[in-house]
């Protein structure tokens, strides 16, 4: 009897160890987030400096990169989990076959000048340098729930930046755009804008499926995050409303129409 008791105790401890440790480890997993010293990275920097990631239960470790090429190489190698890098180089890496997925937008320099009137290429160049947030889509990548929290945090950072710009910029003063620069910030990955750049850069190879780019843009995460944030709103925040007005998200439906982030494929 005593033997049976000992056996049960050992078994319980083993089950406890097996059952609990991986979950705790997963919950505490640190997200390594690559970024550039660029005003376009403001949403991720603000989310970190303003403790927004922590409020969402995420532990994020920012990793600074000198340029997008280095950051994207680290993402492709799985050395960082998420990164905020230039859209042009990101799309080129995706076209090359790197396992990356764009999960959110960032900041783009929209500073208008007389030059834009005569030379559209200057405007397009700034557009190409705009920041997008990318996931390293390798085995062990953050799960959908974590990504939804991450994107939700970036939307909150955007609300903070638009509703309380002085407070927001004071926490990341070093990255504030110089006087006269006009950056626009938008957490929407905006597939259709990306598709326009993709087309302009002529990145669609003949052997690629028509959905190649769409398969590398995770906009349903953004739609879910936006939907959840709006559901929690009493009177919609005007900035949140503007984001929802712009997003192209298929609507919910039906009496049980609560979205579930899972891959189970419905219920029989």
């Amino acid at each position: 009897m005593r033997r049976l008791g000992s056996l049960l105790l050992i078994l319980s401890l083993a089950l406890l160890a097996v059952g609990v440790r991986p979950d705790s480890a997963r919950a505490a997993a640190v997200i390594r987030l690559g970024y550039l010293d660029d005003p376009g990275s403001a949403l991720v920097l603000l989310a970190d400096a303003g403790n927004l990631f922590k409020e969402e239960g995420l532990e994020v470790k920012p990793v600074r990169f000198k340029d997008s090429a280095g950051g994207l190489a680290s993402l492709a190698a799985g050395k960082v989990d998420v990164g905020a890098f230039a859209v042009r180089e990101t799309l080129m890496a995706i076209a090359r076959g790197d396992r990356l997925r764009i999960i959110a937008g960032g900041g783009t320099d929209r500073t208008g000048s007389l030059l834009d009137e005569v030379d559209a290429s200057a405007r397009l160049e700034r557009e190409d340098r705009g920041i997008v947030v990318i996931l390293s889509d390798l085995p062990g990548a953050p799960d959908k729930e974590t990504l939804a929290k991450l994107v939700s945090t970036l939307i909150k950072a955007d609300l903070l930046l638009h509703n309380h710009p002085d407070r927001a910029w004071s926490s990341i003063a070093r990255h504030r755009p110089a006087e006269g620069r006009n950056f626009s910030f938008d957490p929407d990955p905006d597939y259709y804008r990306l598709a326009g750049i993709w087309k302009r850069l002529d990145l669609q190879a003949p052997n690629m499926e028509r959905s190649f780019l769409a398969d590398h843009v995770y906009d349903e995460i953004y739609c879910d995050a936006l939907h959840d944030l709006r559901e929690g709103e009493g009177e919609a925040d005007p900035v949140l409303k503007k984001l929802a007005d712009k997003a192209v998200c298929p609507p919910d439906c039906c009496p049980t129409g609560k979205k579930k982030r899972n891959d189970k494929g419905g219920s029989q």
């Binding site: 349903e220 739609c223 998200c249 298929p250 609507p251 919910d252 439906c253 039906c254 049980t256 129409g257 609560k258 979205k259 579930k260 891959d263 494929g265 419905g266 219920s267 029989q268």
Partner: peptide, 25 residues
């Protein structure tokens, strides 16, 4: 038959080869 809570979720399942056909708006 498989029931889904939203059209987007159903379309994602269709795209991921988890369904052969569906009605999602």
């Amino acid at each position: 038959l498989y029931q889904f809570g939203s059209a987007a979720e159903g379309m994602a399942a269709l795209k991921a080869d988890k369904l052969d056909v569906g009605t999602f708006g």
